[in-house]
Amino acid sequence: MTNRAQSYRKFMGYTQIQMAKLLNISVQAYRNKEKGKTPFKDIEKVKIKKEVQKNGFEDITIDEIFFGNKVAKSFQENNEEVK
């Protein structure tokens, strides 16, 4: 399953090995996080966001990297139910 974190990693030209080193975790642990088997820790999300910002996306947020449209869609659906 491709997620946004993986997409940004590939756009930056980083390998899973490089990302694992950035987060100070094993490559297998990183792969599991990228596949969605285990969640990214908050501190890891911050490190990835900072790295993405350094690579041309200065205004990116953690939500955009890790949640994308799912949060916005869910929020919109919930608001429509309330109306």
Rank of each mutant, 00 (worst) to 15 (best):
D63Y: 02
A29S: 12
K49V: 02
I62C: 05
K70W: 05
D59P: 01
E34R: 02
T61C: 06
Q28E: 13
I48H: 00
K73L: 13
K54V: 04
N69D: 15
T61L: 06
I60H: 04
F67V: 05
V71F: 12
E64W: 01
I60A: 04
D63H: 03
I62M: 12
I65Q: 00
F67G: 00
K45H: 04
Q53I: 05
K35V: 11
V46T: 13
N32R: 14
K37P: 03
D59C: 01
K49T: 10
V46M: 08
A72E: 15
K35S: 13
E44P: 02
F57C: 03
Y30L: 03
D42I: 14
A29D: 02
I62A: 05
F40M: 05
I43D: 11
D42W: 11
E58F: 02
I60P: 03
K73M: 11
K54E: 09
K33M: 06
K73R: 13
K35G: 10
K50R: 11
K70F: 09
A72Y: 13
E51A: 13
K41M: 09
N55E: 11
E58L: 05
N69S: 15
I65C: 01
N55S: 15
D42G: 07
T38G: 06
K70D: 07
K47C: 02
F66L: 12
F67C: 02
N55L: 13
K41A: 12
T61P: 01
T38A: 14
I60D: 03
I65E: 00
E58K: 11
K54D: 12
V46R: 10
R31F: 09
K49P: 00
I43T: 10
N55T: 09
N32S: 13
K70M: 08
I65V: 08
G56R: 11
D59V: 03
N32T: 08
G36K: 04
K49D: 01
V71N: 10
N55M: 10
N69P: 12
R31H: 09
E34V: 08
V52M: 05
V52D: 01
G36A: 07
F66T: 04
N69E: 15
V46F: 06
E44H: 09
D63V: 04
F57K: 05
V71K: 13
I43A: 10
I65P: 00
I43M: 07
F66N: 10
G56P: 04
D63C: 04
I60W: 06
N55I: 09
K50D: 11
D59K: 13
E58W: 01
K70R: 08
E51V: 09
V46S: 05
F67N: 02
K37S: 14
K35I: 14
E58M: 07
A29C: 08
E34S: 05
I62E: 08
K37H: 15
E51S: 13
Y30Q: 02
I48T: 00
G68A: 07
